[in-house]
C-alpha cells in the first residue's frame, strides 16, 4: 500500500511539472503557415544531430540554431521580430 501511495505521489508530481514551467507562447501550424514569408518572422530550427538530419521535413527558409546556445544567437535578432523556434 505504501509503495502504491509513493507511486501515486510520483505520478501526480510528474504530471504537475509542466505547470511549473515558464509560460512560453506557442503558435499553431495554421497560424505559422499564414505568416510564412513575412519579413518580420524569423523561423529557427533548433533540432540537432540526428533529430535534424534524419528528418525529411524541414521548413523552407528556416535557420538552424542550437538550443544550447540560445544566449549567443538570441542577441543577433532585433526585438521587433517574431522568433519561432521548432524542435519536432
Amino acid at each position: 500500500m505504501k509503495k502504491l501511495l509513493v507511486l501515486l505521489a510520483f505520478f501526480l508530481f510528474a504530471t504537475a511539472l509542466p505547470a511549473l514551467a515558464v509560460d512560453v507562447p506557442t503558435i499553431s501550424k495554421d497560424e505559422l503557415k499564414a505568416q510564412l514569408g513575412s519579413p518580420d518572422l524569423v523561423l529557427l530550427d533548433v533540432r540537432s544531430g540526428r533529430d535534424w538530419s534524419s528528418s525529411e521535413f524541414k521548413i523552407r527558409g528556416a535557420v538552424r540554431a542550437s538550443g544550447k546556445e540560445f544566449g549567443k544567437w538570441s542577441q543577433h535578432y532585433p526585438k521587433d521580430k517574431t522568433l519561432v523556434l521548432y524542435c519536432a
Partner: peptide, 9 residues
C-alpha cells in the same frame, strides 16, 4: 539524447 548530439556521427 545522444541522437540529438552531433557527437553521435
Amino acid at each position: 539524447g545522444l541522437a540529438g548530439n552531433e557527437l553521435l556521427e
